[in-house]
Design a protein around this nucleic acid. Structure first.
Lengths: 209, 209
DNA sequence: GTCTATAACTCGATAGAC
DNA sequence: GTCTATCGAGTTATAGAC
């Protein structure tokens, strides 16, 4: 009679938190490469190298896993944007830097960008996740507003508009330009459009309301 | 022994083209109300009031149905935008009108807007539909460029930039502002951000490059 | 040409073995 | 606490009755 030791690799006993993190990483990988729809609990477990049952043992339901994933990926995304941001002398430079950082991440990892969009769309349709789209948006705008305020304080340049208004406008441009890149993949068109957006808005946002 | 007449309503013999249109309408309704993921072939057939087998009889595969649907919905969307467009005296007015028309349709029918986004995301992941996102984007930009050229000819105002450049910028703003509305639902924020975008860009696009 | 019945498969979730 | 085996409901697609 075969024992478990003969038929399968021996698995370690991990603390549940580490097992959760392991599964979240695997879920993000599958979704990034094959799309959110392909990320079944089975596919996630297989990618993580753990048995299917572990998913429900760790998260209870798939919905709970998606919630945890969307939150952790939003954190990761905000943190990544913060690392990419660089110094600038004027508002136009700040706008351009933030937008280029955002677009660089879309260009470097289009699967990850698509994944976040698909997750938000999924959350919008699921009543149990309906609070997440607004939460994520606020997180991005809030982080952008913080960076702008820091820049203003550090550079001594006074802002003609509230930081949140500027941050919101940046978000709008970033998502629009990200979609443009996804749809065309045309670098020249993207750069030209970004230029139009940045220059016009920098002038507009520098005037008092 | 029961005959078919006893157990089910008698169905008419429709030409296959009409049956296809009937199914496309049903598919759009289900996707708009419950999301693309909920639009199974069974749900679509039930909504249309036809037997499940008809879907595969008319379209062969679900992928073929999605392809036909995305194309017809893109047509419908372009046509709807054309009907909403109104006359303006200057470029700023044109920008504002086009954007407000787009946002009005997002506000009036958010489910339809979400559906189009979900369909594009789905197409991007499916090799058999991978040509559609670019095709749809080109369709929108092309239609917007046509309207701008018509306006320029009718009003006698010369454009400082190529119509496609202006049209592309409008698309970027429209998608970005649409996402902003979806995420916040805040009318005041939307109007303020739209104002910033329109004024800045109108000035920028009026200067020679 | 249209529809029913079912095949063949995958899903999320769980009961119970270990 | 961890994993296997399985359940029941869902899916697309099709073979064959009418």
């Amino acid at each position: 009679m075969a024992t478990r030791r003969d038929t399968a690799a021996v698995r370690e006993h991990l603390p549940i938190e580490q097992r959760r993190a392991q599964l979240l990483t695997a879920a993000a990988e599958v979704m990034r490469e094959q799309g959110v729809a392909a990320a079944t609990t089975r596919a996630i477990a297989e990618r993580a190298g753990v048995p299917h049952g572990s998913v429900h043992y760790c998260f209870g339901t798939k919905t709970a896993l998606v919630r945890a994933l969307l939150q952790s990926e939003a954190d990761r995304s905000v943190e990544s944007a913060r690392r990419r941001s660089s110094r600038s002398a004027d508002l136009e430079g700040v706008l351009r830097n933030v937008l280029e950082a955002q677009l660089e991440s879309v260009r470097t990892d289009p699967g990850h960008h698509a994944m976040l969009g698909e997750l938000i769309a999924l959350a919008r349709r699921d009543p149990a996740l309906a609070d997440l789209p607004g939460w994520e948006h606020e997180r991005y705008v809030g982080a952008a507003a913080e960076r702008i305020a820091e820049w203003s304080a550090a550079s001594g340049v006074a802002l003609a508009r509230p930081t949140r208004e500027i941050a919101t406008t940046i978000m709008v441009l970033a998502t629009g330009l990200g979609d443009l890149w996804s749809a065309t993949g045309d670098r020249a068109v993207l750069d030209r459009t970004l230029d139009d957006c940045v220059r016009g808005l920098a002038a507009r946002l520098s005037e008092p309301a």
